[in-house]
């Protein structure tokens, strides 16, 4: 029944949405609500009002970037829906979102926290176990997301 249909465009859209929403989760929860770090807090510690506001500007640019990636996800989802040969399944949506969010944590964590040191998860501690926990959290989401997406492909497709 599903022969000739594909899940790939739906997974790609969910992946983009996962990256964007993962970025928003980080920015809204860690940068704004908990304020445990900001975009540049490793390079420009938040020790004055001006430093806080400079970090706020760069937090805004970070949010603009993840907003753009979220928009790409919406466009990809729209295009996938318009094709007619795309299979939409809950496991691909959840798997793709987890893949994207996990990838965001892994890539952003590796580059920003470990290589550049532009900020750390808990800035007051510098590089700490929290930075490694952030990577582990990302890796777990990637593994779970891949399992959902790949498992679905194997089970449900006529080749």
């Amino acid at each position: 029944m599903n022969a000739g249909r594909t899940t790939r465009p739906a997974v790609a859209a969910a992946l983009a949405l996962g990256i964007g929403l993962g970025g928003f989760f980080d920015g809204v929860l860690f940068h704004q609500i908990l304020q445990i770090h900001n975009m540049l807090s490793g390079w420009l510690p938040v020790t004055s009002l001006a430093a806080a506001k400079v970090n706020m500007v760069w937090d805004g640019l970070f949010h603009a970037a993840v907003w753009t990636i979220t928009l790409i996800g919406v466009v990809l989802l729209w295009r996938a829906a318009a094709r007619g040969d795309v299979l939409f399944r809950a496991r691909d949506l959840v798997g793709g979102l987890l893949l994207g969010w996990g990838l965001f944590n892994l890539i952003e964590g590796l580059i920003d926290h470990h290589i550049l040191g532009v900020h750390h998860v808990v800035e007051a501690l510098g590089r700490s176990a929290w930075d490694y926990a952030f990577l582990a959290w990302g890796a777990a989401m990637v593994a779970l997301g891949a399992m959902l997406v790949r498992g679905g492909r194997r089970g449900d497709f006529a080749r």
Binding site: M39, L40, L61, A65, I69, F104, I107, I111, D112, L116
Partner: peptide
């Protein structure tokens, strides 16, 4: 550059 660094990989 630091802000943009992860973006190409994610794209």
């Amino acid at each position: 550059a630091a802000l943009a660094a992860p973006i190409p990989i994610l794209l």
